[in-house]
Structure formats: structure tokens, C-alpha cells
Computed example of a mutant assay.
Amino acid sequence: MPECLPNPPVVCVIIDAQKVVAQGYTRAPGKNHAEADALKQIQ
């Protein structure tokens, strides 16, 4: 978690039909937030 400060630590999980298809978390400042991190995995 310290790597993402001063951003708040956030986790994002994308589920389709009760199956996890992507997971993301807040990266270091200037990098992806949790949602963008997860979405990159399914594009």
C-alpha cells in the first residue's frame, strides 16, 4: 500500500457470470488507478 501514497489504496475486481476476469489496484502516483489497471487486462 505505501507505493500508492498519496492516492488512497483501492482495489477493483471485474466479474462476469460469477467468474473473476480481471483485478487491479492503485499503482504509484502518476500510474494507473485500480479501475484502469483492471480494464487494461481485458482489452
Rank of each mutant, 00 (worst) to 15 (best):
L5M: 04
A36M: 07
V20N: 05
V21G: 09
L39D: 00
C4K: 01
A28L: 05
R27M: 12
Q41W: 02
K31T: 07
E35A: 15
A38D: 00
A36T: 11
C12I: 07
A38P: 00
P2K: 15
P29Q: 02
V10E: 11
M1E: 10
I42H: 05
Q43A: 10
G24N: 03
M1N: 08
C12L: 06
C12T: 14
A22W: 05
I15K: 08
D16E: 14
V13P: 04
G30H: 08
I14H: 02
Y25F: 03
V21K: 05
N7D: 05
P8M: 08
A28R: 11
N7F: 07
P6V: 02
P29I: 02
K19W: 00
Y25R: 15
T26P: 05
I14D: 03
I14F: 07
Q43D: 11
P6E: 01
A28G: 08
I14G: 03
A34V: 00
Q18D: 13
C4P: 00
N32W: 10
Q41T: 06
I14M: 10
I14W: 03
V10M: 10
G24H: 02
H33D: 15
A34F: 06
M1R: 09
D37Y: 09
G24A: 05
D16Q: 15
D37I: 02
I42M: 14
A38Y: 01
D16H: 13
L5H: 12
V10G: 06
A34Y: 07
P2N: 13
V21T: 07
I42Q: 11
I14L: 14
K31F: 03
K40N: 14
R27L: 12
Q23H: 06
P6M: 01
A38I: 04
G24D: 00
Q41A: 15
V11G: 13
A17Q: 14
M1K: 11
A17R: 14
P8R: 13
A17M: 08
Q23W: 03
V11I: 12
I15W: 09
A36P: 01
C4L: 03
I42G: 14
T26Q: 15
D16R: 15
G30Y: 10
P9Y: 00
Q43N: 10
H33C: 11
P6W: 08
L39M: 14
Y25T: 11
Q18W: 02
P2I: 14
Q18C: 08
L39G: 01
K19N: 12
V20G: 04
Q18A: 11
A22Y: 05
V13I: 15
G24Y: 01
L5T: 04
H33W: 00
Q43S: 11
V13N: 03
A36N: 07
T26M: 09
I14P: 03
V21N: 06
E35R: 15
R27T: 09
A22E: 04
R27Q: 14
P8N: 12
V11T: 12
R27I: 03
K19E: 13
E3N: 07
A28K: 12
L5S: 05
P2A: 14
N32P: 04
Y25H: 10
P9V: 13
P9G: 08
K31E: 12
P9W: 00
A17F: 04
Q43H: 13
V21F: 00
N7C: 05
Y25Q: 14
C12Q: 07
Q23T: 08
Q23L: 08
M1Y: 07
A34M: 00
N32M: 07
A36S: 06
V10W: 08
T26D: 11
Q43C: 06
Q41D: 04
P2R: 15
V10A: 10
C4M: 04
N7L: 09
G24W: 00
